[in-house]
Protein backbone atom coordinates (compact mmCIF):
# COMPACT_ATOMS: atom_id res chain seq x y z
CA UNK A 1 0.00 0.00 0.00
CA UNK A 2 2.95 2.34 0.65
CA UNK A 3 4.38 1.89 -2.83
CA UNK A 4 1.86 4.03 -4.77
CA UNK A 5 2.19 6.75 -2.14
CA UNK A 6 5.99 6.75 -2.53
CA UNK A 7 5.65 6.80 -6.31
CA UNK A 8 3.37 9.80 -5.99
CA UNK A 9 6.23 11.67 -4.30
CA UNK A 10 8.31 11.22 -7.46
CA UNK A 11 5.74 13.47 -9.13
CA UNK A 12 5.75 16.16 -6.43
CA UNK A 13 9.31 17.44 -6.51
CA UNK A 14 9.58 21.20 -6.20
CA UNK A 15 13.33 21.88 -5.96
CA UNK A 16 16.29 21.17 -8.18
CA UNK A 17 18.40 19.45 -5.47
CA UNK A 18 15.59 17.03 -4.61
CA UNK A 19 15.04 16.33 -8.32
CA UNK A 20 18.75 15.52 -8.68
CA UNK A 21 18.58 13.00 -5.80
CA UNK A 22 15.39 11.41 -7.17
CA UNK A 23 16.90 10.98 -10.62
CA UNK A 24 20.33 9.79 -9.45
CA UNK A 25 19.18 7.48 -6.66
CA UNK A 26 15.44 6.95 -6.99
CA UNK A 27 14.90 6.27 -10.68
CA UNK A 28 17.57 3.50 -10.90
CA UNK A 29 15.71 1.69 -8.10
CA UNK A 30 12.51 1.89 -10.13
CA UNK A 31 14.29 0.75 -13.32
CA UNK A 32 15.57 -2.29 -11.42
CA UNK A 33 12.15 -2.98 -9.89
CA UNK A 34 10.53 -2.79 -13.31
CA UNK A 35 13.14 -5.05 -14.94
CA UNK A 36 12.84 -7.56 -12.11
CA UNK A 37 9.04 -7.62 -12.36
CA UNK A 38 9.29 -8.31 -16.10
CA UNK A 39 11.98 -10.98 -15.80
CA UNK A 40 10.18 -13.04 -13.17
CA UNK A 41 6.74 -12.26 -14.61
CA UNK A 42 5.43 -11.16 -11.26
CA UNK A 43 3.43 -8.36 -12.74
CA UNK A 44 1.20 -6.21 -10.65
CA UNK A 45 -0.24 -4.16 -13.49
CA UNK A 46 -1.29 -1.24 -11.28
CA UNK A 47 2.17 -0.84 -9.76
CA UNK A 48 3.89 -1.24 -13.12
CA UNK A 49 1.73 1.39 -14.78
CA UNK A 50 2.37 3.80 -11.90
CA UNK A 51 6.13 3.24 -12.34
CA UNK A 52 5.77 3.91 -16.08
CA UNK A 53 3.94 7.14 -15.32
CA UNK A 54 6.89 8.25 -13.15
CA UNK A 55 9.27 7.35 -16.01
CA UNK A 56 7.16 9.38 -18.44
CA UNK A 57 7.10 12.41 -16.15
CA UNK A 58 10.87 12.38 -15.62
CA UNK A 59 11.61 12.18 -19.33
CA UNK A 60 14.76 10.05 -19.20
CA UNK A 61 15.81 7.79 -22.08
CA UNK A 62 16.12 4.82 -19.68
CA UNK A 63 12.53 5.38 -18.59
CA UNK A 64 11.25 5.83 -22.16
CA UNK A 65 12.92 2.57 -23.21
CA UNK A 66 11.01 0.73 -20.51
CA UNK A 67 7.73 2.39 -21.51
CA UNK A 68 8.38 1.21 -25.06
CA UNK A 69 9.12 -2.32 -23.85
CA UNK A 70 5.93 -2.45 -21.76
CA UNK A 71 3.90 -1.15 -24.70
CA UNK A 72 5.41 -3.74 -27.05
CA UNK A 73 4.51 -6.45 -24.55
CA UNK A 74 0.99 -5.02 -24.39
CA UNK A 75 1.01 -4.91 -20.59
CA UNK A 76 -2.49 -3.98 -19.37
CA UNK A 77 -3.15 -2.31 -22.71
CA UNK A 78 -6.84 -1.75 -21.85
CA UNK A 79 -6.08 0.39 -18.80
CA UNK A 80 -6.86 4.08 -19.07
CA UNK A 81 -3.58 4.74 -17.27
CA UNK A 82 -1.90 4.32 -20.65
CA UNK A 83 -3.58 7.55 -21.75
CA UNK A 84 -2.09 9.33 -18.74
CA UNK A 85 1.36 7.86 -19.44
CA UNK A 86 1.46 8.75 -23.12
CA UNK A 87 -0.11 12.19 -22.56
CA UNK A 88 3.21 13.22 -20.98
CA UNK A 89 4.91 12.87 -24.36
CA UNK A 90 4.11 16.29 -25.78
CA UNK A 91 6.30 18.44 -28.02
CA UNK A 92 8.32 19.62 -24.97
CA UNK A 93 9.10 16.09 -23.79
CA UNK A 94 12.67 15.03 -24.65
CA UNK A 95 11.71 11.42 -25.49
CA UNK A 96 8.56 12.00 -27.58
CA UNK A 97 10.10 11.38 -30.98
CA UNK A 98 12.05 8.40 -29.62
CA UNK A 99 8.86 6.86 -28.22
CA UNK A 100 6.85 7.42 -31.41
CA UNK A 101 9.59 6.00 -33.65
CA UNK A 102 10.36 2.98 -31.51
CA UNK A 103 6.69 1.94 -31.45
CA UNK A 104 5.93 2.63 -35.10
CA UNK A 105 6.05 -1.02 -36.13
CA UNK A 106 4.27 -2.46 -33.10
CA UNK A 107 0.59 -3.25 -33.25
CA UNK A 108 -0.77 -1.64 -30.09
CA UNK A 109 -4.23 -2.59 -28.93
CA UNK A 110 -6.85 -1.13 -26.62
CA UNK A 111 -6.43 2.16 -24.80
CA UNK A 112 -2.70 1.96 -25.42
CA UNK A 113 -3.19 1.91 -29.21
CA UNK A 114 -5.65 4.81 -29.10
CA UNK A 115 -3.39 6.87 -26.83
CA UNK A 116 -0.48 6.23 -29.21
CA UNK A 117 -2.54 7.48 -32.17
CA UNK A 118 -3.56 10.60 -30.22
CA UNK A 119 0.09 11.31 -29.40
CA UNK A 120 1.15 10.79 -33.00
CA UNK A 121 -1.53 13.26 -34.15
CA UNK A 122 -0.37 15.87 -31.68
CA UNK A 123 3.30 15.51 -32.60
CA UNK A 124 2.52 15.50 -36.33
CA UNK A 125 0.42 18.66 -35.89
CA UNK A 126 3.35 20.59 -34.44
CA UNK A 127 5.81 19.14 -36.96
CA UNK A 128 7.79 17.18 -34.36
CA UNK A 129 7.53 14.02 -36.50
CA UNK A 130 7.78 14.06 -40.27
CA UNK A 131 5.98 10.81 -41.01
CA UNK A 132 2.86 9.75 -39.14
CA UNK A 133 3.32 6.18 -37.80
CA UNK A 134 -0.23 5.23 -38.84
CA UNK A 135 0.52 5.94 -42.49
CA UNK A 136 0.87 2.21 -43.28
CA UNK A 137 -1.50 -0.39 -44.70
CA UNK A 138 -1.55 -2.45 -41.48
CA UNK A 139 -2.35 0.56 -39.32
CA UNK A 140 -5.03 1.72 -41.78
CA UNK A 141 -6.73 -1.66 -41.36
CA UNK A 142 -6.68 -1.12 -37.59
CA UNK A 143 -8.13 2.39 -38.01
CA UNK A 144 -10.83 1.09 -40.35
CA UNK A 145 -11.86 -1.41 -37.65
CA UNK A 146 -12.06 1.39 -35.08
CA UNK A 147 -14.28 3.46 -37.37
CA UNK A 148 -16.51 0.52 -38.19
CA UNK A 149 -16.96 -0.70 -34.61
CA UNK A 150 -20.68 -0.84 -33.94
CA UNK A 151 -20.09 -0.45 -30.20
CA UNK A 152 -19.46 3.21 -30.78
CA UNK A 153 -18.94 4.26 -27.16
CA UNK A 154 -16.07 1.81 -26.74
CA UNK A 155 -14.21 3.15 -29.72
CA UNK A 156 -15.51 6.72 -29.90
CA UNK A 157 -12.21 8.25 -28.77
CA UNK A 158 -10.41 6.02 -31.27
CA UNK A 159 -12.72 7.05 -34.12
CA UNK A 160 -12.22 10.74 -33.28
CA UNK A 161 -8.44 10.24 -33.26
CA UNK A 162 -8.61 8.43 -36.63
CA UNK A 163 -10.57 11.33 -38.12
CA UNK A 164 -7.98 13.77 -36.75
CA UNK A 165 -5.09 11.77 -38.26
CA UNK A 166 -6.31 12.05 -41.86
CA UNK A 167 -4.32 15.16 -42.84
CA UNK A 168 -1.12 13.24 -42.02
CA UNK A 169 -1.86 10.13 -44.07
CA UNK A 170 -1.14 9.38 -47.70
CA UNK A 171 -4.25 10.67 -49.48
CA UNK A 172 -4.91 7.48 -51.39
CA UNK A 173 -4.70 5.48 -48.21
CA UNK A 174 -6.77 7.99 -46.23
CA UNK A 175 -9.57 8.42 -48.79
CA UNK A 176 -11.68 5.46 -47.60
CA UNK A 177 -11.09 6.36 -43.97
CA UNK A 178 -12.26 9.90 -44.65
CA UNK A 179 -15.47 8.64 -46.26
CA UNK A 180 -16.10 6.36 -43.27
CA UNK A 181 -15.39 9.14 -40.77
CA UNK A 182 -17.68 11.65 -42.50
CA UNK A 183 -20.42 9.02 -42.46
CA UNK A 184 -19.81 7.92 -38.84
CA UNK A 185 -22.88 7.71 -36.57
CA UNK A 186 -21.24 9.98 -33.99
CA UNK A 187 -21.34 13.70 -34.86
CA UNK A 188 -18.13 14.09 -32.81
CA UNK A 189 -16.34 11.97 -35.43
CA UNK A 190 -18.09 13.76 -38.30
CA UNK A 191 -16.93 17.13 -36.92
CA UNK A 192 -13.33 15.95 -36.63
CA UNK A 193 -13.54 14.53 -40.16
CA UNK A 194 -14.91 17.86 -41.40
CA UNK A 195 -11.90 19.63 -39.87
CA UNK A 196 -9.57 17.18 -41.61
CA UNK A 197 -11.41 17.68 -44.91
CA UNK A 198 -10.91 21.44 -44.60
CA UNK A 199 -7.24 21.02 -43.67
CA UNK A 200 -6.83 18.86 -46.78
CA UNK A 201 -8.06 21.82 -48.85
CA UNK A 202 -11.79 21.12 -49.30
CA UNK A 203 -13.57 24.07 -47.71
CA UNK A 204 -17.07 22.74 -48.38
CA UNK A 205 -17.13 21.08 -44.94
CA UNK A 206 -17.22 24.56 -43.36
CA UNK A 207 -21.02 24.68 -43.48
CA UNK A 208 -21.17 21.32 -41.72
CA UNK A 209 -19.24 22.77 -38.78
CA UNK A 210 -21.45 25.87 -38.69
CA UNK A 211 -24.54 23.64 -38.65
CA UNK A 212 -23.23 21.60 -35.69
CA UNK A 213 -22.58 24.86 -33.78
CA UNK A 214 -26.35 25.34 -33.54
CA UNK A 215 -26.91 21.97 -31.85
CA UNK A 216 -26.12 22.44 -28.12
CA UNK A 217 -25.16 18.78 -27.87
CA UNK A 218 -22.20 19.23 -30.21
CA UNK A 219 -21.82 23.00 -30.21
CA UNK A 220 -18.75 23.09 -27.97
CA UNK A 221 -16.79 20.75 -30.23
CA UNK A 222 -17.90 22.50 -33.43
CA UNK A 223 -17.06 25.96 -32.03
CA UNK A 224 -13.64 24.77 -30.86
CA UNK A 225 -12.99 23.43 -34.37
CA UNK A 226 -14.00 26.72 -35.98
CA UNK A 227 -11.70 28.60 -33.60
CA UNK A 228 -8.87 26.14 -34.38
CA UNK A 229 -9.35 26.86 -38.08
CA UNK A 230 -9.37 30.64 -37.44
CA UNK A 231 -13.05 31.07 -38.29
CA UNK A 232 -14.35 32.54 -35.04
CA UNK A 233 -16.61 34.95 -36.96
CA UNK A 234 -18.46 32.02 -38.53
CA UNK A 235 -20.05 31.01 -35.18
CA UNK A 236 -23.80 31.80 -35.46
CA UNK A 237 -24.92 34.66 -33.18
CA UNK A 238 -27.55 32.53 -31.39
CA UNK A 239 -24.82 30.20 -30.11
CA UNK A 240 -23.52 32.93 -27.82
CA UNK A 241 -26.79 33.37 -25.89
CA UNK A 242 -26.26 32.53 -22.18
CA UNK A 243 -29.09 29.94 -22.16
CA UNK A 244 -27.62 28.20 -25.20
CA UNK A 245 -24.09 28.24 -23.75
CA UNK A 246 -25.40 26.81 -20.48
CA UNK A 247 -27.19 23.99 -22.36
CA UNK A 248 -23.99 23.25 -24.28
CA UNK A 249 -22.02 23.20 -21.02
CA UNK A 250 -24.23 20.53 -19.48
CA UNK A 251 -24.20 18.46 -22.69
CA UNK A 252 -20.41 18.53 -22.63
CA UNK A 253 -20.38 17.44 -18.97
CA UNK A 254 -22.81 14.57 -19.64
CA UNK A 255 -20.67 13.48 -22.60
CA UNK A 256 -17.62 12.76 -20.44
CA UNK A 257 -16.54 9.12 -20.56
CA UNK A 258 -17.14 8.61 -16.84
CA UNK A 259 -20.67 10.07 -17.05
CA UNK A 260 -22.92 9.02 -19.95
CA UNK A 261 -20.16 9.15 -22.60
CA UNK A 262 -22.39 10.96 -25.06
CA UNK A 263 -24.76 13.95 -25.03
CA UNK A 264 -28.42 13.36 -24.12
CA UNK A 265 -31.07 12.68 -26.75
CA UNK A 266 -33.22 15.50 -25.36
CA UNK A 267 -32.45 18.44 -23.09
CA UNK A 268 -34.83 21.18 -21.88
CA UNK A 269 -34.48 24.28 -19.76
CA UNK A 270 -36.21 23.60 -16.44
CA UNK A 271 -35.39 26.77 -14.53
CA UNK A 272 -33.05 29.75 -14.52
CA UNK A 273 -32.70 32.51 -11.96
CA UNK A 274 -30.21 34.94 -10.49
CA UNK A 275 -29.43 34.25 -6.86
CA UNK A 276 -26.76 34.64 -4.24
CA UNK A 277 -24.87 31.36 -4.43
CA UNK A 278 -23.30 30.45 -1.06
CA UNK A 279 -20.54 28.15 -2.40
CA UNK A 280 -19.03 30.98 -4.47
CA UNK A 281 -20.29 33.79 -2.26
CA UNK A 282 -21.56 35.90 -5.14
CA UNK A 283 -24.65 36.81 -7.11
CA UNK A 284 -24.87 34.76 -10.30
CA UNK A 285 -27.24 33.30 -12.88
CA UNK A 286 -27.84 29.57 -12.51
CA UNK A 287 -29.68 27.10 -14.72
CA UNK A 288 -31.35 23.71 -14.33
CA UNK A 289 -31.93 21.43 -17.30
CA UNK A 290 -33.82 18.18 -17.52
CA UNK A 291 -32.23 15.70 -19.90
CA UNK A 292 -33.21 12.34 -21.31
CA UNK A 293 -31.46 9.34 -22.86
CA UNK A 294 -33.72 7.20 -25.02
CA UNK A 295 -31.87 3.95 -24.51
CA UNK A 296 -30.50 4.33 -21.01
CA UNK A 297 -31.77 2.45 -17.99
CA UNK A 298 -31.81 5.56 -15.81
CA UNK A 299 -33.33 7.47 -18.74
CA UNK A 300 -32.39 10.93 -17.53
CA UNK A 301 -32.14 13.47 -14.79
CA UNK A 302 -31.48 17.09 -13.94
CA UNK A 303 -28.23 19.02 -14.32
CA UNK A 304 -27.14 22.38 -13.00
CA UNK A 305 -25.00 25.01 -14.75
CA UNK A 306 -23.81 28.37 -13.50
CA UNK A 307 -21.41 27.30 -10.76
CA UNK A 308 -20.02 23.75 -10.90
CA UNK A 309 -21.62 22.11 -13.93
CA UNK A 310 -22.87 18.68 -12.93
CA UNK A 311 -25.85 16.41 -12.45
CA UNK A 312 -26.47 14.64 -9.15
CA UNK A 313 -27.37 11.45 -10.97
CA UNK A 314 -29.71 9.30 -8.90
CA UNK A 315 -30.36 12.10 -6.39
CA UNK A 316 -32.29 14.67 -8.41
CA UNK A 317 -35.10 14.22 -10.92
CA UNK A 318 -37.18 16.62 -12.96
CA UNK A 319 -40.12 15.91 -10.59
CA UNK A 320 -38.38 17.84 -7.81
CA UNK A 321 -39.09 21.57 -7.44
CA UNK A 322 -36.21 23.70 -8.79
CA UNK A 323 -35.49 25.17 -5.33
CA UNK A 324 -34.93 21.65 -3.95
CA UNK A 325 -32.47 20.80 -6.72
CA UNK A 326 -30.51 24.03 -6.12
CA UNK A 327 -30.48 23.19 -2.40
CA UNK A 328 -28.89 19.76 -3.03
CA UNK A 329 -26.30 21.23 -5.41
CA UNK A 330 -25.49 23.90 -2.84
CA UNK A 331 -24.81 21.22 -0.19
CA UNK A 332 -22.73 19.21 -2.65
CA UNK A 333 -20.52 22.14 -3.69
CA UNK A 334 -19.95 23.24 -0.11
CA UNK A 335 -18.99 19.68 0.84
CA UNK A 336 -16.57 19.40 -2.10
CA UNK A 337 -15.03 22.77 -1.19
CA UNK A 338 -14.52 21.64 2.40
CA UNK A 339 -16.53 24.73 3.39
CA UNK A 340 -17.20 25.07 7.12
CA UNK A 341 -20.88 25.78 6.31
CA UNK A 342 -21.25 22.39 4.60
CA UNK A 343 -23.76 20.03 6.25
CA UNK A 344 -22.53 16.56 7.16
CA UNK A 345 -25.23 14.98 4.97
CA UNK A 346 -26.77 16.40 1.82
CA UNK A 347 -30.44 17.18 2.18
CA UNK A 348 -33.02 19.52 0.68
CA UNK A 349 -33.71 20.96 4.12
CA UNK A 350 -30.06 21.74 4.91
CA UNK A 351 -29.49 23.21 1.44
CA UNK A 352 -32.62 25.35 1.54
CA UNK A 353 -31.66 26.77 4.93
CA UNK A 354 -28.31 27.85 3.46
CA UNK A 355 -29.69 29.27 0.20
CA UNK A 356 -32.58 31.05 1.93
CA UNK A 357 -30.22 32.63 4.46
CA UNK A 358 -28.53 34.62 1.69
CA UNK A 359 -31.49 35.30 -0.60
Amino acid sequence: AAFPVLLGLFESIVCKEAMHVMQEQGLPLLYAAFDHALSCERLDADDLLLILKVFAIHGTRDGAERIVRAAQLGIASQRTMWSVILEQFDEEHPQSVFMINRLKDSLLLGTLGIAYLQRANRLAAVGAIQRHPFDTDARCRQMTAWLRDADHLRHLQAAIAVAASLPYLDQTRGRDLLALALDHHSPCVQIEAAVSTIRLGNLSARKLLIRWCSDPRYSRIAMRSLRFLGWVDAVPAGCCHPDFLATADLCQWLSQPNEYGRPPDRIELMDTRVLYWPPTDDLRQVWLFSYHYDDHECSGGVGMVGSVTCSLIGETTSDLPAADVYALHCCCELQNNGDRRAPRYRSVKAGKTLVDRYN
Binding site: L6, I13, V14, A18, M19, M22, L29
Partner: peptide, 20 residues
Protein backbone atom coordinates in the same frame (compact mmCIF):
# COMPACT_ATOMS: atom_id res chain seq x y z
CA UNK B 1 5.72 18.19 -1.93
CA UNK B 2 9.37 17.11 -1.88
CA UNK B 3 11.26 20.34 -1.30
CA UNK B 4 14.73 19.35 -0.04
CA UNK B 5 17.47 16.91 -1.03
CA UNK B 6 17.21 15.34 2.43
CA UNK B 7 13.55 14.52 1.94
CA UNK B 8 14.35 13.03 -1.46
CA UNK B 9 17.08 10.87 0.07
CA UNK B 10 14.69 9.55 2.73
CA UNK B 11 12.13 8.67 0.03
CA UNK B 12 14.75 6.87 -2.08
CA UNK B 13 15.99 4.93 0.98
CA UNK B 14 12.43 3.93 1.81
CA UNK B 15 11.82 2.77 -1.75
CA UNK B 16 15.04 0.73 -1.60
CA UNK B 17 13.93 -0.98 1.62
CA UNK B 18 10.46 -1.61 0.26
CA UNK B 19 11.76 -3.16 -2.95
CA UNK B 20 14.41 -5.26 -1.23
Amino acid sequence: NVSTAEEATIICDTVAVLLA
